Amino acid sequence: SRHTFEINGERWTVEGVSEELKEILRAAERASNDEAERLLRLALKLI
Results as ranks from 00 to 15, higher is better:
S1Q: 14
S1V: 13
S1P: 12
R2D: 08
R2V: 14
R2I: 14
H3K: 04
H3Q: 11
H3V: 14
H3C: 14
H3G: 06
T4L: 06
F5C: 06
F5W: 03
F5N: 01
F5A: 01
F5P: 00
E6G: 00
E6K: 04
E6R: 04
E6F: 15
E6Q: 07
I7R: 01
I7G: 00
I7D: 01
I7C: 11
N8K: 05
N8Y: 05
N8G: 05
N8E: 04
N8C: 13
N8Q: 05
G9I: 02
G9C: 09
E10Q: 14
R11I: 15
W12Q: 01
W12G: 00
W12V: 09
W12A: 00
W12P: 00
T13V: 14
T13E: 08
V14W: 07
V14P: 01
V14I: 13
V14S: 02
V14Y: 07
V14A: 05
V14F: 15
E15R: 04
E15G: 05
E15M: 10
E15N: 07
G16W: 11
G16I: 12
V17S: 05
V17H: 05
V17P: 13
S18K: 03
S18M: 04
S18D: 08
E19A: 08
E19H: 08
E19Y: 07
E19M: 07
E19C: 09
E20A: 11
E20I: 12
E20F: 11
E20R: 07
E20N: 08
L21V: 15
L21E: 02
L21F: 06
L21Y: 03
L21Q: 03
L21I: 15
K22F: 15
K22D: 06
K22C: 15
K22T: 12
K22E: 13
K22L: 15
K22V: 15
K22H: 14
K22S: 08
E23A: 14
E23I: 10
E23S: 12
I24F: 04
I24W: 04
I24N: 00
I24D: 00
I24E: 00
L25G: 00
L25N: 00
L25V: 02
L25Y: 02
L25C: 03
L25I: 05
R26K: 11
R26L: 14
R26D: 06
A27K: 12
A27E: 09
A27V: 06
A27C: 10
A27R: 14
A28F: 07
E29H: 06
E29K: 05
R30D: 08
R30Y: 09
R30L: 14
A31Q: 04
A31V: 06
A31T: 05
S32L: 08
S32N: 10
N33S: 15
N33Q: 14
N33M: 13
D34W: 11
D34C: 11
D34K: 11
E35C: 07
E35L: 08
E35Q: 06
E35A: 06
A36R: 13
A36Y: 06
A36T: 04
A36H: 03
A36P: 01
E37F: 12
E37S: 10
E37H: 10
R38L: 08
R38V: 11
R38Y: 11
L39E: 00
L39G: 00
L39F: 06
L39Q: 01
L39W: 07
L40D: 00
L40T: 02
L40E: 00
L40V: 05
L40P: 00
L40N: 01
L40S: 01
R41C: 12
R41W: 10
R41K: 12
L42T: 04
L42H: 07
A43R: 01
A43K: 01
A43P: 00
A43S: 02
A43Q: 00
L44N: 02
L44M: 10
L44H: 05
L44I: 12
K45D: 09
K45F: 13
L46Y: 10
L46S: 04
L46R: 05
L46I: 14
L46A: 06
I47A: 07
I47V: 06
I47D: 02
I47R: 02
